[in-house]
Amino acid sequence: MKNDYLPHKAKITSIQKESFDTNTYKVVFDDKKIKDTFDYKQGQFAEISVLGVGEAPISITSSPTRKGFLEFSIRNTGKVTRAIHDLKVNDPLFVRGPYGNSFPYDELKGKNLYFIAGGIGLPPLRSLINMVMDNRKEFGHVKILYGAKTPDEVCFKKELEEWKNIPNTEVWLTVDKPCDGWGCSVGVVTELWKETNVHPENAVAILCGPPIMIKFVIARLAESGFKDIDIVMTLERYMKCGIGKCGHCNIGEKFVCIDGPVFTYNQVKAFPTKEHAF
């Protein structure tokens, strides 16, 4: 019987510093067969282990259109991610997956897209963003609205610049606490509504961020006329197994690990209401 709990050895081939507490790790599986067959979709996650420390679910932030490697943008926040941050290039990481559902893709074609993220919420969207950027002509207007606590916390600074330069694509940044020379907005992400139009017509909003941000963004999107079904989000939950067994990520009847992590807002609304902050 196949054992889905066994992770596969991979090697870190590069580490890119994204913000003061977040790095992007590029990893390649040792086993060629796994490397070639590890097909994933935008928005899926993998379980990453540091043997002897533990395992954590991490979004795959690379785009499925870019083959041969996986990227994980990992914030140093818990026991396992702390251990990952202690690793260097060529160190092993153990990976299993991919798990979970994915962001819609074909359904988004021809639509205007609003990617709205807060803090460490941008990495889970990166996979889809890059996939869209790689097939840019198939989509309408794209706006990326991104809020962070401080300029230090802003992830993917280089890519944000690159995305900005792609035609028909806008990047809007805001931080709570600016530093000297900060050229963008100040305030929470909904402040960006003052800076740019958020228009529901032929549009889908894709969100990721802390619950409190999601709550305000959803309210703002509703005000702007977005329908529940056109608001898509990827949820975070504490999880152990990633395959619908350990129980930690249960919400109502759903497992975030197998039924999610991507849900539309009308699905989220059907969850037991008191369990989420929005």
Partner: peptide
């Protein structure tokens, strides 16, 4: 009840991943 937690343990190079009963 089927919920479990997962824990790692090691000494030197050798180690083990275990799971044990957990609950909501």
């Amino acid at each position: 009840c089927t919920c479990f937690n997962v824990l790692d343990d090691k000494k030197g190079d050798k180690g083990v991943r275990r799971r044990n009963w957990d609950g909501c």
